[in-house]
Amino acid sequence: MNDDRSFLSRLFGAAPETDRRRPDGARPQRWVEPDDVPHARTWMSWPSRKSVWGRQLGGVQQDIALIARTIARFEPVTVCAPDDYSVREALSLCGPAVTVTAAVPTDDLWMRDTAPVFRRDADGRQDAVGLNFNGWGGKQTHRDDAEVAAGVAGLLRLPFSYAEFVGEGGSIETDGDGTLLATESSLVNKNRNRGMSRDEIEAAVLDVYGADRMIWVPGVKGRDITDNHIDVTSRFVRPGTVLVQLPPADRHDVWARDAREQFDILSGATDARGRRLRVIRVDGPDTVRSRDPQFVDSYLNFHLVNGAVIAARFGDRTKDEAARRTLAESFPGREVVQLDVDRLMAGGGGIHCSTMQEPLA
């Protein structure tokens, strides 16, 4: 592990000051910034285990490499890999613009859920918090992934602490202005937070994120590995504005019902500043190229980078283009780059799930 901060500064660039002061002038002691702030880099993880991916491993590696190369056009990317062999493998597919390190070993690729969340204070100082990743409630091996949050913080020499709840980065959406979104199915779940009430979990989450209000949606428990993370269906654009993806009218499965319920709840919700949320509808694809039942057909599992939005497309030209236009209108000044990453999406997650931004300090 290289602990030379000046080396990291030269490698990743300087970090100018940012300020997300609330409209009323008040700020918590520390808070998690929204995805749209300038980034120092994106963190990713290299999939290397056939015990997790089986015969799909090679294709998933190609998709992760494509995402890493694409992000590297806009900001630095660091990919964590479990060993020297995996480092060489990742470098061969990701190319020279991507940094790969074995300093933080990993089990799988879902960096959104294993990395720390980064916070800042009023003076721009950063710290990092681990959300106690436990393999989505013990559903997958996570010996190395449980240590990723502390490892990344140590590599960056940031103050580090653990939250008072168990969760994942993909289970919580923040506007950076006091309001969070989450599914009850993921956090209020005995496989993560046994013995804690919803109010106790809410208080612990708000404390870590420096937020004032949690908007809960019920979600879907026990039907996918994450117990239904919010970042597949509902995402903040900015304070007061949310994107929600809805399924085709002829879909009535559990996921379709959940999406419509999220849309209805958020359409009637107010945020921490008393604003009635503006909800922008995004129509999901009518057709996809995959028949895998785990396939995540989400346009909203996008990753914001400096100057761009990296999102998926599914081969439904009409809906792909409509989603591209909505993302471009929602994030003016950013290029929308749509990628074919079906093999990743068939693994139960997407582009946002495989990335974690580190804001500029």
Results as ranks from 00 to 15, higher is better:
262 Q>H: 10
274 G>V: 00
279 V>R: 06
267 S>H: 08
270 T>G: 13
288 V>A: 10
266 L>F: 04
284 G>P: 09
290 S>N: 02
288 V>M: 07
268 G>N: 10
288 V>N: 06
289 R>W: 07
262 Q>T: 14
280 I>K: 07
274 G>D: 04
271 D>Y: 01
263 F>Y: 13
261 E>H: 01
278 R>Y: 11
279 V>W: 00
272 A>T: 10
262 Q>G: 06
286 D>A: 10
279 V>H: 04
266 L>S: 07
272 A>Y: 00
282 V>F: 04
284 G>Y: 00
272 A>D: 05
275 R>F: 02
262 Q>V: 15
288 V>L: 01
287 T>R: 12
282 V>P: 04
272 A>H: 07
273 R>C: 14
263 F>C: 08
269 A>T: 14
275 R>E: 08
264 D>T: 09
285 P>A: 13
267 S>Y: 11
270 T>A: 09
279 V>K: 05
289 R>Q: 09
283 D>N: 14
282 V>H: 01
279 V>D: 03
274 G>E: 05
276 R>H: 13
269 A>G: 13
274 G>Y: 00
279 V>L: 04
262 Q>N: 09
275 R>C: 11
290 S>E: 02
264 D>V: 09
270 T>I: 03
287 T>C: 05
267 S>R: 14
275 R>W: 00
281 R>V: 12
281 R>M: 15
268 G>T: 12
265 I>A: 03
268 G>S: 10
286 D>R: 15
267 S>K: 14
289 R>N: 07
273 R>Y: 10
289 R>C: 11
265 I>L: 08
263 F>K: 11
261 E>Q: 10
261 E>C: 06
277 L>Q: 04
290 S>G: 08
270 T>S: 14
264 D>C: 02
269 A>Q: 06
283 D>L: 12
265 I>T: 10
261 E>M: 07
275 R>V: 03
282 V>D: 02
269 A>S: 14
270 T>Y: 03
262 Q>R: 11
278 R>N: 15
266 L>E: 12
275 R>H: 10
278 R>P: 15
262 Q>L: 08
268 G>R: 13
